[in-house]
């Protein structure tokens, strides 16, 4: 089975999200990802990165965030590494989605989407960095119909 990999280095600036989407577009094409998988990969990474860029740094300095994605045997392994303050997204409780409009919070959906769109999430803090590893099954192309 094929193996493809991408590594993207982004600055801690929300405008970098556009660069991310462009790079993922190329990666998706190379790996023949379905449009659904590519959409979800974009979304997962945007949610994680928007969180890191908006909340991980309080020093107004320039930082680098490293994104890797590997596709092996139909499974995507997505990694994000940042040198921001420690943040374990697994400790954030899920949002309450059953409330009526008036009582629903306007935010807090990003991590919920990431949890729902991945099969596993691992968090480690080492060498002053946050490491997030997410796994996601990609859609297999449909088998050809045969006339019996």
């Amino acid at each position: 089975m094929g193996y493809e990999q991408i590594r993207i280095v982004l600055r801690n600036d929300l405008s970098e999200i556009a660069k991310l989407h462009g790079e993922l577009e190329n990666f998706g094409e190379k790996c023949s990802l379905s449009s659904k998988t590519l959409f979800e990969l974009n979304l997962i990474l945007e949610e994680v990165l928007a969180n890191v860029i908006s909340y991980a740094y309080g020093d107004n300095q320039r930082h680098e965030i490293v994104v890797r994605a590997d596709l092996t045997d139909g499974e995507l392994v997505i990694e994000v590494e940042d040198d921001g303050r420690p943040f374990n997204p697994l400790q954030i409780p899920p949002p309450d989605l059953d409330r009526p409009l008036e009582q629903r919070s306007v935010g807090g959906l990003g991590l919920h989407l990431v949890r729902e769109l991945t099969s596993s999430i691992e968090y480690t803090r080492r060498e002053e960095k946050n490491h997030l590893v997410m796994r996601k099954k990609t859609e297999k192309s449909k088998p050809r119909q045969r006339w019996m």
Binding site: A50, L101, V106, G107
Partner: peptide, 19 residues
Amino acid sequence: TYMSSLGLRVLMMVAKNIK
């Protein structure tokens, strides 16, 4: 073509203001 949670947030704001 695409919407992230920041888009969902905008819609929630709009819905609350319309209400």
